[in-house]
Write a protein that binds this DNA or RNA. Sequence first.
DNA 1: ATTAATTCTAGAATATTATTCTAATATGAC
DNA 2: GTCATATTAGAATAATATTCTAGAATTAAT
Lengths: 208, 208
Amino acid sequence: MTEATTTANTDAPASRSSRDKLLASALACFDEHGLTGMTIEQIRRQANSSIGSLYHHFGNREGLIAALFLQLLDDQLAWSRTAIDAATTPYETLHALIHGYLDWVTHHPVEARFMYAARSEVARGENAAALKEKNRQRIGLLLAVLKAGIKSGSIRSLPPETFASLLVGPSENYCRAWLADRVQGKPVAHADVFVDAAWRAISATPCE
Amino acid sequence: MTEATTTANTDAPASRSSRDKLLASALACFDEHGLTGMTIEQIRRQANSSIGSLYHHFGNREGLIAALFLQLLDDQLAWSRTAIDAATTPYETLHALIHGYLDWVTHHPVEARFMYAARSEVARGENAAALKEKNRQRIGLLLAVLKAGIKSGSIRSLPPETFASLLVGPSENYCRAWLADRVQGKPVAHADVFVDAAWRAISATPCE
DNA sequence: ATTAATTCTAGAATATTATTCTAATATGAC
DNA sequence: GTCATATTAGAATAATATTCTAGAATTAAT
């Protein structure tokens, strides 16, 4: 579903593996019925697959949800990876991070809605460790940049565990609101507002 | 469960209605097994109730979850209501709002975890309207204060639909991280950081 | 190419869980 | 007390997840 949603797939539909079709089908069923409403039978039928095949690939319902979640998480990180790696200053890093996040959600609303809905279940299930590891990588990368900024004086000293929340908290909150139809403007349309707010929150000299 | 967690209940346990016992039991089962893992049978047994009673009060599983969610939402709003009403300036309002939120989550971790987990399901179920109405009330109150602030020049002009995210986004994000054991410090311990960040985000003169 | 090992698919059988349904019991109004 | 209504009970049923066994496809080795 990664490929299918991000690019026009040049391969014939039949070339998509059974596993991928099941993941794509799970996402579609989630969109239609919600996380608790979607059933194994629906997913299996829409993927033209069998119960046996589904359980062979994913073990159980939770495994299917976790697999979809982790794949989407990789997608999301890859989306802004290039821009983040190209950034040289803390501000550029922050800009790439937030803009990339807002942009990904704007272009993948169903995927994002699924991730918000599934995260807490994944975090307590069998694959909790895999999720924690990916989180640590992301946070580690970010904290390194910020600590350098603190030393150089461009970023003020704050409790390290609050940095991530200050940076992406407003963006995440707005994305959730958008996906729940509580606000109308696409997330990426407010990128400047959220980048600016993040910079004000952590910059030593926000008014210059 | 509301009473039980916020105050020492002076009534005898038997005085608690069957409905309330079911709600309390649902919360406990959620804590132990997660939203998708908790079963009607578990909830019924822990509440010393019957299947018929449960369905009489809540209609179905979704109704039970929604009832618990909406009750906790009222709890949460009431928690900081006094402080918010007492506030006279935009900064005081903002302070009361954020501090109250962080304080409630800190003192009601299980309830908060449940709310984060259940919100998206409630938002698409039968009780979506009830949730939307409560949200509108909260947002409306807030926007009134902010618009007055913009007119008086103390708050800068921003897209109205981004205000709520700028104010509570970081706090909410941090609370989720805390409840998922990704950070250690209690949310309310960082209240100053988040109040300050919110003020920087929306103030016309953050550096004075 | 043939065999053997492995992976994958199928779907009936089973187990688990949610929900319905009917009857009985309490509660409150008059 | 009698009626009406609300509540409780739990067996019966329906919906759903999971297991299990067998067979088909694929791969690797010779």
